[in-house]
């Protein structure tokens, strides 16, 4: 293994030269489908330079024991999500619409398989 003179490989002094150019690849969110017919579920995230490598890394990180039959990766910055602060106004409209549930309706006693 080539050693640079005066700078031991693996020494704390070699930080700067190895650090630059080695910063962050974008974060990708990984969604895994456990079996056909099942929905994709968020498994976690990882860093990768592009979608192809993101998929390969996702297989190695999140499916070492056949946990997936299909994987989606999407760059985190492309996900738009609701925020907890908006929750009250955003989800509230559904809260008072109990007539959207079957329990709201009364049916005559004795009727079956309705």
């Amino acid at each position: 293994m080539p050693q640079r003179k005066g700078q031991l490989k693996g020494s704390p002094m070699s930080k700067d030269q190895n650090h630059q150019g080695d910063s962050q690849w974008p974060i990708w969110e990984v969604f895994v489908q456990a079996k056909t017919g099942a929905p994709h579920e968020h498994a976690g995230s990882l860093h990768a330079p592009d979608a192809e490598i993101a998929l390969q890394n996702a297989r190695d990180v999140y499916s070492r024991r056949s946990e997936a039959v299909n994987i989606w990766v999407v760059e985190s910055k492309n996900i738009t999500a609701t925020t907890p602060e908006d929750n009250p106004t955003f989800f509230e409209p559904a809260a008072d619409k109990i007539y959207r549930h079957p329990q709201f309706y009364k049916i005559p006693r004795g009727v079956k398989n309705l």
Partner: peptide, 22 residues
């Protein structure tokens, strides 16, 4: 710590290559 640093440094060309390819 030395083993970790060496592993990280030795992996640099792989990260560089992946970045360049992308």
């Amino acid at each position: 710590m030395r083993a970790r640093r060496i592993a990280h440094e030795n992996g640099k060309w792989v990260r560089d290559a992946a970045g360049a390819y992308a």
